[in-house]
Amino acid sequence: MSPDELASLSDSLFSISIALYSLAMVAFSAQLAFGRRAARTRELVGAGGPAGELPTEAPAAAEGGRGRRWGTVAMVLAALGAVAHGGVLVARGLAADRLPWGNMYEFSTATVFVAVVAYLVFALRAPGLRHIGLFVLAPVVLSMVLIGLFLYAEAGPLVAALRSYWLAIHVSTAIIGFGVFFVSGIASVLYLAATRHEERVAAGERPGSLLSRLPGAAALDRVAHRTAVFGFPIWTFTVIAGAIWAEAAWGRFWGWDPKETWAFIAWVVYAAYLHARTTAGWRGTPAAWVNVVGLGVMIFNLTFVNMVSTGLHSYAGVN
């Protein structure tokens, strides 16, 4: 296929993956709607259990057959969506004959891809987490639509400064780190929602919302922490690799360029999160808020710093 055909294939796959993710969202909603309420008792046990392992008990036992079927359909659709999503990047890379993360459109698309894959891996290993599919895919679809609308850039060659093997090292790890933090942030948001829900249940209210279908708060907190623990060394490496590249490309390893500053801020906030989670008085809800702030910083660093600030990381390619 010619580069032009590959580029348009990539664009079609982008739309296809949004469509598949949207269908998966519908199926996840159906799973939540048709699943039986019995699941709640299991959640409360999970939340209070001292050993605190992931809710690995198959939800099938508690769930209606219809709900389970919808859950399977949703997972298959999400996985197909991820395949198409991966295809977007592969076709892009082949069309431009380089790594497919040379501008903001490609970077963000790859980041969301990592987030989806991270979620799928979790959902395969801990089926209890499949419930949160709707809450993961909703921000995914939203991000994809926004990326398609506002960040789209034609496949094209890289500017001179990006032609370095550090692109493969620094930018790939940035994408992986961001994708992992994305999942971590969502888990913390869900944790905050689930905690409030559990408090209301404990207070004797019977809030009849989707939240009662969430996995237990403790499980969500663990997902958030574990992903952040996984993401933090990756982010540290990203910053170090970026500094090494900057030393070769810009003449200094650190210069408080806006992107560098915000990468530093994100690093400090995640360090605070990891400390907070093991410090009395900060455990639980306050720590989760720190993690949410971390995700906010990451998103700010991607959007505002790329598009509004003027710095050396001006590779957005957005017109």
Binding site: W256, P258, T261, W262, F264, I265, V268, V269, A271, A272, H275, A276, T278, T279, G281, W282, V297, V305, S309
Partner: peptide, 21 residues
Amino acid sequence: AMRTAIVLLFLLALAAVPGSL
């Protein structure tokens, strides 16, 4: 104390913000 360290980490993050804006 660790609690102070967390607050200082926050202050450090906050202090860097005007440097980018």
